[in-house]
């Protein structure tokens, strides 16, 4: 209004909106620049982290070449480092965790949207969301002090004595029952990523237009048939998105895994054997790595590899989703 008041006499009335437009276009400009800056900042930040990790890890890549990726050596005494074991551990624990978590998450989401009585939906839904809010160190301690003893006393001896005797797959269940190990880590990871996947699934299941489901029920479809034939096809993209979200979290999880994975730089055929992941190795070894040492370079190189790994997972999920979209 002040601007309007200071208008010189004789100014055509048509100028007022223009002045006003100019003022708001200034606001627009500031807003646009701020948004561009924020968007650009994210790119810049991401780029600089990748570059910093790569430059930091360069001495390790130079010293060990491309073989760094699959070499299973990790000997701080003779300064020979390889990422093979930790890459293997990272992928195996994350994939196992997805295999364990997805069916349960699907069950939770399905129960909440289709089967649960209305009064129970909120408590269970809130409980699932609260699971996501538990700090990972808590999961680590719980896994180490509660789950690992249970595993070593009951689950693993039983599995080793029964499944371990089988030809072929028996090798997956052999070895001493440490309680910790790849399988326990995957189990804890599965519990940690469950809420992300379940919450995503529930939200998207709820977005299916009721008329679709009612039509299917009207045709005589059972609940399972409605889920299989209507809800899942309608929501599969978001469901895959939720699973990828969980996979991404599982790949980079550090604290909880460090507690329960057994932390040995060996690839064992047994799922109960100890192993390590990229994140756990970095977390454990970082405090004892001197600046400019090859070990620190190897750890930074591991960080770079984890970055690339996460990027590949994201790219694959995008590619999968695109194929599904077309189909």
């Amino acid at each position: 209004m002040q601007q309007a008041a200071t208008l010189p006499l004789g100014t055509p009335m048509g100028a007022r909106p223009r002045r006003g437009a100019r003022a708001s276009s200034l606001g627009d400009t500031i807003f646009r620049v701020a948004c561009h800056a924020a968007g650009g900042f994210v790119l810049l930040l991401l780029g600089s982290i990748i570059i910093a990790l790569f430059i930091g890890g360069l001495p390790a890549f130079q010293a060990f070449g491309i073989g760094f990726l699959w070499s299973t050596e990790w000997d701080p005494v003779t300064e020979v480092f390889g990422a093979g074991v930790s890459i293997y551990g990272t992928i195996v624990t994350a994939v196992l965790a997805i295999l364990l978590a997805v069916p349960v998450a699907f069950g939770v989401a399905f129960y909440l949207t289709e089967l649960s009585p209305a009064w129970l939906r909120r408590p269970i839904g809130t409980a699932v969301e609260l699971l996501a809010a538990v700090p990972s160190i808590i999961y680590g301690m719980w896994g180490f002090f509660m789950i690992a003893p249970l595993m070593s006393q009951y689950v693993q001896p039983a599995a080793i004595d029964s499944l371990g005797e089988l030809p072929g797959i028996g090798a997956l269940f052999q070895g001493p029952p440490f309680g910790t190990g790849i399988f326990t880590a995957a189990l804890i990871l599965a519990i940690m990523i469950l809420p992300f996947i379940a919450a995503t699934m529930r939200d998207v299941f709820e977005q299916v237009p009721p008329v679709f489901k009612e039509s299917a029920y009207g045709l005589g479809a059972t609940t399972w048939e409605v889920m299989k034939g209507v809800v899942l096809p309608y929501t599969r993209i978001s469901v895959a998105g939720g699973i990828m979200l969980g996979l991404g979290r599982a790949l980079g999880e550090t604290m909880a895994v460090t507690f329960v994975i057994g932390n040995a730089n060996r690839i064992s055929t047994s799922l109960f054997g100890p192993g390590n992941t990229i994140a756990s190795v970095v977390a454990l070894e970082f405090g004892e790595s001197e600046t400019d040492s090859l070990k620190l370079a190897a750890l930074l190189a591991l960080g770079f590899i984890l970055f690339v790994l996460s990027f590949i997972v994201l790219a694959i999920s995008r590619w999968l989703l695109r194929a599904r979209l077309k189909g």
């Binding site: 701080p76 005494v77 057994g262 454990l284």
Partner: peptide, 26 residues
């Protein structure tokens, strides 16, 4: 010899409490 070495056997745990906990558990 080193502050961390390539242990040929066994399982690793974090910190004194981790080693003590592992020994207690197994």
């Amino acid at each position: 010899v080193g502050t961390s070495v390539r242990f040929p056997a066994g399982t690793g745990a974090r910190g004194n409490e981790g080693v003590a906990g592992t020994v207690k558990n197994i």
